[in-house]
Design a protein around this nucleic acid. Structure first.
Length: 183
DNA sequence: ACGATGATGAAC
DNA sequence: TTCATCATCGTA
């Protein structure tokens, strides 16, 4: 059955959390309505050394949330119009987060926040039901099993470079930190 | 290929 | 206080 993902799940290295989020459900409560959408595309942003990560500038008012506890949302405005939804990962004081780039039926980070009515108001909230925005597990164990091979590697996951980060230089812009669930 | 649109961080 | 930049998207 559907189960709320605990903060412990997010308190791991971002490169482990990001692919593990694929196939899980982003859940949003809007008024009395609850919407569950499967996560299909994510990106990892990993610490001050990662020149594509906002925390490469160090601690600022904006990035402070990424230095905080795992399992909280980091939401910021991009290009003056679109809200980007991230979830903080890893140990406290280590800045890293997963950007949710796409969910089933809503491909694109700006589109999904618009459609799910996510904005600055959820910034810093924990990913728990009382926040109105949280993550739940996949359907059932048998369908989860289809995602894994004998080596425990996800066969249905494609790894590519991150989108829109050419400013990060030749090394960090090419890291395969984007994970996409194949159809 | 380009404009909308505004927060952010760094320079001055 | 100004300025360039920007984890995007819809329209052309």
């Amino acid at each position: 059955m559907k189960k709320v993902i605990s903060q412990k799940f997010f308190n791991r290295p971002v490169l482990e959390v990001a692919p593990d989020l694929l196939g899980k459900y982003l859940v949003r409560k809007i008024g009395q309505k609850i919407v569950r959408l499967k996560i299909t595309e994510v990106e990892a942003y990993d610490g001050e050394k990662d020149l594509a990560c906002h925390a490469c500038k160090g601690r600022t008012q904006r990035t402070e949330i990424m230095y905080g506890e795992a399992g909280h949302f980091y939401i910021y405005l991009c290009y003056g119009m679109y809200w980007m939804l991230n979830i903080v990962t890893g140990e406290k004081n280590y800045p890293s987060a997963v950007l949710i780039r796409g969910v089933e039926g809503s491909e694109g980070p700006g589109k999904l926040t618009r459609e799910l009515k996510i904005d600055k108001r959820q910034n810093g909230f924990p990913a728990l039901p009382f926040s109105g925005l949280w993550i739940e597990g996949g359907e059932d164990p048998s369908s989860r099993a289809k995602l894994t091979t004998g080596r425990g590697q996800k066969s249905a996951v494609r790894r590519t470079a991150r989108i829109g980060v050419s400013y990060a230089g030749p090394i960090w812009s090419k890291k395969k930190y984007r994970f996409v669930l194949k159809k």
